[in-house]
Nucleic acid binder design. Structure first.
Lengths: 214, 214, 214, 214
DNA sequence: TACTAAGCGAGACGGTACGTCGCGTCTTCTT
DNA sequence: AAGAAGACGCGACGTACCGTCTCGCTTAGTA
């Protein structure tokens, strides 16, 4: 996924000649990016020159690993999100609440800042959108698993449109990250409210007495 | 909404001395922005210098009207979206389908490109998010009206969380604009599928026979 | 000769549009170059970035006037040499002594340093040699005038090779500037010794008694 | 003269441990320098990296032999000039013509290019001027020998300033190398014209009848 | 009619970041 | 230990755009 790891991929049997890349530089660079993203400065405080200075590294060392600024940002974002959480499987609702809360709690400010740096390049170079989806898609796949299991257990409608539901689950988070709060949407209990709205649906039902257990 | 109109606002009773601003310049500038956004170039092709050159205008003429690049972009985006559509009121479902289709059909590529230019500044200067919401909020308010009317007519649940529902209706569009297609979500019939998913809900119901009319 | 003066040449009748170049910037830049050349630092202390910083000027302001580093150096050198001295015409020997002393006294250290910066570009781009000769040639022409007059007055041989003699007069100065002192050549009285050697010639004459006045 | 020979000087009695230096590398490096100097490229095409690539050698192999780029260039120049010619001693004039022609014929273009690379460092580090003179001085010494012998044989004035005359003999060549042709100085027959000018002198003599033999 | 004040196209200005290249040093494995 | 390969910190290169600032000219309303 990352350019750096691609260069030293596991598939290579023969060692590359010459001095090997210094792994500490990779880490120092990524950490410098994350630190700058979080430094409360403006989004363009994340300049390559600042990253190099903060990481104690020459600019060429960065450009040897990533072809340009945005590729570096993509990599930093993917590392920022950390490992994908594993749902516990107690119930669909609880699993989804956990996944959404996790995504929401993680680096909201950082994430938004990183996105601000990424979008320009994502637009200028659409293939990069797929690179970016490579970060998002595994998380979506976990959600699809939860939904499929819910259909099997009968917790969810058998004819559920899984892809659309995943979009409903993840897109609001994106919107909140980018635009900040939307009036009337709670910060506390957001994940629960979102999931209940999706589970229950908006349409009125004629049979209130038929749902005593819920 | 625009800085330009604020400068020559209606509150002024005495006519300003000196040569009045040339209204054709405003249009030429906005049109140049939109043309550059659509020119298939990269997102940073939309530089003030390029806009000025394309509009046949001096840079100072732009900065006299907008305080900086991003304010200009915000203005161009809001004009790009065109007038807010008015729902016909036949049914909640049809009104929402119309609103969503309209938002989706409009300038998907342009919009994405404009966002790419806007986000960096939105993050660096959070008040701009509110400026930006000023573009989005009126459209949301129209949706809220449809939802409220749906509750009154009994088409929607009486305890519906209107704000969350609006988020569910609008956020997926944002996600598609930014990231492009998501696998499994139809381009054709997208609005209908989205709205049905939101209306119906994901949870299974014990009473299939209770919904013969639907 | 200079790029700057070429742009605002006297032949132009219509004023160029836009803000005119700031003449103080030209001076500040040239002075910064000369100051850096004389700062006792190494030759590559004369970097465009250092010049810009010392002159309190943006790099673009330099590159707007000169296409590259070496063109700037050429210009600085020509200004460093100052106005061409005018010989008094008392005698050929005295006029030449004055011209050579003047050339030698001027900025020996600076000159050598500037040459060090110039040669790389002179070689890489031979037309620049002619630009450079434009600085040197007027000074040579003054010498030719002195020699021609000396022939007329009978002070010099009628069949003198003027161009070769000019080369003999100027080349040793170049050599001293570049390589520093040559053993056995006096610093004090250098001009006189040089000119006497050229006037008198190296060949032995059979008639020492024929030169009692000298 | 070269750093390489200094490192493996004759004073060492015990054989150095480890792998001995590969003598072919020395030659390959020097040849690569000369090839690059002659490649019609710009003067800064002679970078250490290009030399290493062309010679099929690691950069460290170069830096093990020469302390820096300019030392390498000095060495290459001295090797470029080839062995010092030995005058035949028939007459002063013929000996000098031979020496000057030889110096002039050798690698004019290469020499100029090499100088372009050398001067920057010569200025930044004046001791290098002496290193450089070590290349030039032996040639000058040969000339001094010719001149001294000419005084003994009576071909030259007894009170000749030998050092100044050597300067007059060598400096014009430098000037031509660096600045290219000077107007009015012949390419063909240059050495003869130069030497005659130096021998004969510029001053007019009152006794034309006194020189019938010449 | 002349004056005044502002708008206008053009482009120079001080900055700052970009991505590239060469320097001289270092670290790896191979010979 | 030398060698080929190439990564490393550093710093200059020349370019592009930012937002501001003069220029000379044009276009109104005011005197």
């Amino acid at each position: 996924m990352t350019t750096a790891s691609a260069d030293t991929g596991a598939g290579q049997c023969r060692k590359a000649p010459g001095r090997p890349r210094d792994a500490r530089a990779d880490d120092a660079i990524i950490e410098a990016v994350i630190a700058l993203l979080g430094s409360g400065q403006s989004a363009d405080a994340v300049s390559i020159e600042a990253v190099a200075a903060k990481a104690g590294v020459g600019k060429a060392t960065i450009y040897r690993r990533w072809p340009n600024k945005e590729a570096l940002l993509v990599d930093a974002v993917s590392r920022m999100k950390g490992p994908i959480p594993v749902p516990e499987g107690t119930s669909v609702r609880e699993d989804l609440v956990m996944l959404i809360s996790h995504a929401r709690s993680k680096n909201v400010e950082h994430y938004s800042r990183a996105m601000a740096c990424l979008f320009p390049e994502m637009v200028r170079n659409p293939p990069l959108r797929f690179v970016f989806q490579a970060v998002v898609e595994p998380r979506r796949e976990v959600m699809r698993g939860v939904l499929r299991r819910g259909i099997e257990t009968g917790e969810l409608r058998a004819d559920l449109d899984i892809n659309m539901t995943v979009l409903l689950l993840t897109a609001p988070n994106l919107s909140l990250n980018l635009f900040g709060h939307v009036q009337g949407v709670p910060e506390e209990g957001y994940a629960e409210a979102l999931i209940d709205a999706i589970l229950l649906g908006a349409a009125a039902r004629p049979e209130p007495p038929a749902l005593p257990a819920e």
